[in-house]
Simulated scan of single mutants.
Amino acid sequence: MENTMIQAAKRTIATFLLLIPGVFLEAKTYLMGSAGLQFDLGALGSTISTDGLDSSSNYATTDSTGTQNGVLPRLAVIPENRLLTLQHSSNGLISTKTNGGMTGLTLSLGYEQDFGKAFFWRVNAHYTRKIMGGDTEAKFAGQSFYHMTWDYNAIQVPVNIGIKLSVSEDAAVYIGAGLHYFKGGWSLAGHNRLSDVHQALVDANITDTTVLGLVSDGTDPSAVWENTKFNVSGIAPNWLIGAQARISDKGHIYMEMETLFSFQYGIAHPRSEGGIAGLAPSVAYPQVLGGTQYRFGYKHEI
């Protein structure tokens, strides 16, 4: 009986040893590259389009009866909808160019390896840069009084582990999650001379309270040649979902969506007198480098 058990154990071990090379031979590895888009970079779309950014300084206000009734914050960043309202309320005296929030191009390179029967791990490097949006300009009588250009860049290096399920001989879907290192930030450059427009209208004896009210809260002093830059780094989680299909003996195309939760508070140092007075010599602001990237790419088995 004992000899029988020993012989059975030997056969089991021998079978296992024979199977191990097959397991590793079946594990596929890939080099991969992709390109894609990320929308609303920095989560700044609402700031640019509708919210603006309050200054730390204030201006006196009056109520509808003409009685002074406290103070309101000035605007370091004027939202685009306010500038469009001015354009349509000033009979063409003020003109505006708007582009909304920022959209970025994402380029990615990586390495992936299957293991087991339905699992994979991968490491990627993503680089994202603004390619459109984030550029607002307004002119008074043909002269630029407000021009803000936003920029954004980020590097992210995610390491993921996940499940890959075949849906046919040549196609599979997958989902994964992991952690990533991130580094980058956004910047804001330009000028805000809305207070100069307000003073010019007052000097010209303009009494339209609607227009005067819309230009009464610019930075004072004006922000000229501003260039504020934030840069942060850290580690955060991420997850992805995608699908791949074979197009040649060793080639696959894939589409995927990856969400990265990159977030860190950043410190920047405004350069203009108006920026320093309106914000602070050193200003803190949340840096959202994360978001969802939509990519299309190619994998090659090696």
Score class of each variant (00 low, 15 high):
residue 56 S to L: 12
residue 53 L to H: 10
residue 142 G to L: 12
residue 270 P to D: 08
residue 86 L to F: 11
residue 70 G to I: 02
residue 198 H to C: 04
residue 291 G to H: 06
residue 7 Q to T: 02
residue 123 V to H: 09
residue 79 P to R: 15
residue 301 E to W: 10
residue 152 Y to P: 05
residue 68 Q to V: 15
residue 183 K to N: 14
residue 46 S to V: 02
residue 162 G to T: 08
residue 191 H to A: 09
residue 282 S to Y: 13
residue 109 L to P: 00
residue 38 Q to C: 05
residue 97 K to M: 04
residue 260 L to R: 14
residue 89 S to F: 14
residue 226 E to Q: 01
residue 12 T to D: 03
residue 157 V to Y: 10
residue 8 A to L: 00
residue 47 T to C: 05
residue 42 G to V: 09
residue 17 L to D: 07
residue 93 L to I: 13
residue 144 S to E: 08
residue 217 D to L: 00
residue 232 V to L: 08
residue 131 I to D: 13
residue 63 D to L: 10
residue 122 R to K: 09
residue 138 A to Q: 00
residue 234 G to Y: 03
residue 195 S to P: 02
residue 150 W to M: 07
residue 183 K to E: 14
residue 31 L to F: 09
residue 112 E to P: 00
residue 266 G to F: 04
residue 158 P to G: 12
residue 206 I to D: 14
residue 202 V to F: 12
residue 65 T to W: 14
residue 4 T to N: 01
residue 175 I to A: 15
residue 105 L to A: 14
residue 75 L to S: 00
residue 193 R to C: 03
residue 249 D to A: 15
residue 234 G to N: 04
residue 237 P to W: 13
residue 156 Q to G: 10
residue 9 A to W: 00
residue 100 G to I: 05
residue 151 D to K: 13
residue 39 F to N: 06
residue 186 W to G: 01
residue 33 G to A: 09
residue 298 Y to K: 06
residue 209 T to R: 04
residue 20 I to W: 01
residue 79 P to T: 13
residue 216 S to T: 08
residue 56 S to M: 12
residue 186 W to L: 02
residue 12 T to K: 02
residue 34 S to H: 03
residue 72 L to G: 11
residue 51 D to R: 10
residue 185 G to H: 01
residue 170 D to V: 10
residue 205 N to F: 10
residue 136 T to R: 01
residue 135 D to I: 06
residue 196 D to T: 08
residue 130 K to N: 13
residue 209 T to F: 02
residue 145 F to P: 00
residue 60 A to G: 08
residue 248 S to E: 15
residue 165 L to W: 08
residue 223 A to E: 01
residue 51 D to A: 09
residue 164 K to W: 05
residue 56 S to H: 13
residue 32 M to F: 08
residue 101 G to Q: 05
residue 88 H to Y: 15
residue 251 G to E: 15
residue 195 S to N: 07
